[in-house]
């Protein structure tokens, strides 16, 4: 059997030696933090106009306003990290070197997930602190109820979406197809369906809606389930996508 640490080292070399890794991860950080900072600043400057209803103000959520764009970058990272092997034909070199396909995909997921988690944690905490600094008097702190959970939730949310995308890409074994399916799904289909009365119930169980429940500090009206249930639903999607990818990888001719 292939040595698992050797597979990890090899996959780490692969991931650090292409520019798309740096670009997509840097974009995740910049977009999440930048958009969040901008909205925090605007909210602070126009607080009375922005706040008309009597629900409690979610300073954490405001800081994380950019995550919907940031998640797109980390999804692209997940797709490219797996998909470039298929687009270049390198997958056959990889599988000839590591014929144990389950071990290979596990190694890929560990390296990909580890790197995504590290970047997501840095992104989440810096985004939170930047947002709070710009929210001035309306800011919150990590000591407030549910806030720390929400910040970690943001990091886990990004990481899980990245791994979900990697799993879907392995299933589709095609980078372009995976981007063509995932980007419209997360950017168009899921948000639109979440707003359509009939389809709402279904859309509420999509990985992005479920995962983003982890970011909520206050209970919202009409919310189907809490943050921990949301985490588990998102995790289930991620595990299912990776398991599906493993199944396809194991049984398909490369």
């Amino acid at each position: 059997m292939a040595s698992f640490p050797a597979v990890l080292r090899s996959e780490w070399t692969k991931i650090r030696s292409v520019r798309s890794t740096i670009w997509t991860l840097a974009l995740t950080f910049v977009v999440t933090l930048g958009v969040g900072a901008l909205l925090s600043l605007l909210t602070n400057n126009n607080f009375e106009e922005f706040r008309s209803d009597n629900t409690p103000f979610d300073a954490t959520g405001t800081a994380f306003s950019g995550i919907l764009l940031g998640e797109l970058a980390i999804i692209v990272f997940g797709v490219l990290a797996i998909g470039n092997e298929y687009s270049s034909g390198m997958i056959r070199v990889t599988l000839a070197a590591v014929p144990q396909r389950g071990t290979l995909l596990t190694g890929k997921a560990v390296v990909l997930g580890g790197l995504a988690l590290a970047v997501s944690l840095v992104t989440a905490f810096l985004t939170f602190f930047t947002g709070q600094a710009l929210l001035g008097d309306h800011s919150t702190s990590l000591g407030e109820p549910n806030v720390l959970r929400a910040v970690f939730g943001a990091a886990l949310y990004l990481t899980m979406l990245c791994l979900f995308s990697a799993g879907v890409t392995t299933m589709l074994h095609n980078q372009t197809l995976a981007l063509g399916v995932l980007v419209p799904f997360f950017f168009l289909l899921s948000p639109i369906l979440s707003a359509v009365p009939g389809a709402k119930t279904v859309a509420h169980y999509f990985p992005d809606y479920a995962g983003s429940r982890m970011l909520l500090v206050y209970e919202q009206n009409g919310q189907p389930y809490g943050p921990w249930a949301g985490f588990l639903i998102c995790l289930a999607w991620t595990v299912a996508a990776l398991a599906g990818g493993a199944l396809v990888l194991k049984n398909r001719d490369a």
Binding site: N84, G89, M90, A97
Partner: peptide, 27 residues
């Protein structure tokens, strides 16, 4: 050792890095 197709390489990776990951996978 096998050569199946030329240029089964990520276009953005250097020749040395391509050989390096391959070497690491098999110690």
């Amino acid at each position: 050792g096998a050569l199946l197709e030329a240029k089964a390489v990520h276009p953005g990776r250097t020749a040395r890095d391509h050989l390096l990951w391959l070497a690491q996978s098999n110690r």
